[in-house]
């Protein structure tokens, strides 16, 4: 199979879907000839034309609302929000409008939009361009939240997001854009709400999201040398969450570590930890569930501090050991 990057996979599926469905189009800032801030829409305006690729003014609130309004009229817009931090500017339209319209109207109307947006730190963009705010979205009934960690997943999940009749926030990660993976050329669907076991193991379950999936896999490899067998689960979508796969894994291993980049306090990892504690996995737990998230600080600019603000492989290894060794 061909290897392409995470960014190329998303570009490819967007082109395929826009060509296949006349109601699909994309709008966003600098997505025309510039090809998007991270190059995700490179070549699209040339190939699909300005009717399908709408380069917008710097008006997040308006462009988000435009996407929602068009969706309500039967279109299926893709909105590129240049950095996920800018949801703050678009929040009313996402939270008060898109998420609630169908329910408030008694089941009338639907809002099939996909908001694609890069989150995460590690690129040196500092406090206002490096956040991981997915927990805000996951908290809102009516929004689905997707966080792919590989190019393969991104392509399949994107199509599922686009085919969904609800608003979906599709969180990409800046550090994953260049990561390569085997990706089929033809379009395919990975259903929302289906976790993926990225590595099988028997001693401890690590539930990790986005970039943390890769760090958890590295940690698992290291720990294998020490005789600790780690299972790594990527939920892939936070809403809906595949509780069953997580619970089944914890029943097998008896231990769980939840790893995420967002600020640990109030992050989505707390939800995952609760799901494990509240369900039938509880009886199988040999140790308390461990959460490992980012420090409660804005992301600093200095590269050393920036790394220290969010979990690194070393931190994951320590968190895993704390549950496996302490509660041996």
């Amino acid at each position: 199979m061909r290897e392409i990057t995470y960014a190329e996979a998303i570009n490819e599926v967007m082109c395929q879907e826009i060509e296949a469905n006349e109601d699909v189009f994309i709008l966003g800032e600098d997505i025309g000839i510039y090809g998007g801030a991270f190059g995700l829409t490179r070549g699209m305006i040339e190939k699909l034309g300005p009717e399908k690729v709408l380069n917008t003014p710097i008006s997040e609130q308006a462009i988000t609302g435009v996407a929602i309004g068009a969706a309500l009229m039967g279109m299926r817009p893709i909105l590129e929000l240049q950095f996920s931090d800018f949801v703050t500017v678009a929040m009313d339209q996402i939270v008060n409008q898109a998420a609630k319209i169908r329910y408030m109207y008694g089941g009338k109307g639907k809002v099939p939009i996909v908001i694609r947006t890069p989150g995460g730190s590690g690129a040196g963009f500092a406090a206002q361009h490096s956040q991981s705010l997915e927990a805000w979205m996951a908290h809102i009934p009516g929004l689905k939240v997707v966080q792919p960690s590989t190019a393969y997943d991104a392509k399949g999940l994107f199509r599922a997001a686009l085919e969904d009749d609800n608003p979906v926030i599709f969180y990409e990660h800046k550090l994953l854009y260049g990561m390569k993976d085997d990706v089929p050329e033809e379009s395919y669907v990975i259903p929302l709400g289906k976790a993926d076991i990225k590595r099988e193991g028997k001693d401890v379950t690590v539930v990790a999201t986005s970039i943390m999936v890769h760090r958890a896999l590295q940690a698992a490899e290291e720990l294998e040398k020490e005789g600790i067998s780690v299972e790594v689960i990527d939920p892939r979508t936070l809403v809906p969450l595949d509780i069953e796969t997580i619970v089944e894994s914890v029943k097998k291993t008896g231990r769980a570590v939840v790893v995420y980049e967002a600020v640990q306090r109030g992050g989505y990892g707390a939800e995952i930890a609760s799901v494990i504690n509240e369900g039938e996995a509880f009886d199988y737990l040999d140790a308390p569930v461990v959460r490992l998230g980012g420090k409660a600080v804005p992301i600093p600019y200095n590269p050393t501090l920036e790394k220290k603000a969010v979990p690194q492989v070393e931190d994951i290894i320590n968190a895993i050991k704390s549950t496996v060794v302490t509660y041996a």
């Binding site: 963009f125 600019y301 200095n302 501090l305």
Partner: peptide, 14 residues
């Protein structure tokens, strides 16, 4: 990104 910077290296250019 140095400690002597206007924002102690935490803010950067922006």
């Amino acid at each position: 990104g140095k400690e002597t910077g206007y924002c102690k290296g935490k803010g950067g250019s922006m």
